[in-house]
């Protein structure tokens, strides 16, 4: 089980308090009607699914209930950073060295 730091509670809590919520920084188009079928399908279904660093959404569902984002390495399962939803996506390249060490 992972220990995950909730950026709202500012605490490390066990993974069972959290729920995974998919890739982060996929923004719902503000005017969906103006989006092409292809672009809408991309928004609905296409995900990066990388082997390596992944910015993803989590919710502290059995804690404060808030959604937040995390940078996780999909090979090691290490969570390298958590941050509040709405904050900019971190530069994943900056984590690469520490994760692959």
């Amino acid at each position: 089980m992972l220990l995950i730091r909730c950026p709202h509670c500012e605490m490390e809590r066990p993974e069972i308090e959290f729920r995974y919520a998919g890739e982060a920084h996929i923004v719902r188009p503000p005017d969906p009607a103006a989006v092409s079928d292809e672009a809408w399908a991309d928004y609905l279904y296409m995900r990066a699914n990388p082997k390596g660093l992944h910015a993803e959404r989590w919710r502290h569902i059995h804690g404060c209930g808030r959604f937040f984002n995390a940078v996780r390495h999909t090979v090691t399962d290490k969570i390298l950073k958590t941050y509040k939803a709405g904050e900019p996506k971190p530069d994943l390249g900056a984590f690469a060295t520490s994760a692959d060490r």
Binding site: R19, A21, R28, R57, R59, I61, G65, R66, F67, A85, G86
Partner: peptide, 13 residues
């Protein structure tokens, strides 16, 4: 409720 919270917190804050 989870879905509503998701939209409220992340899409329609």
């Amino acid at each position: 409720l989870h879905l509503m919270e998701d939209y409220l917190q992340t899409e329609f804050p």
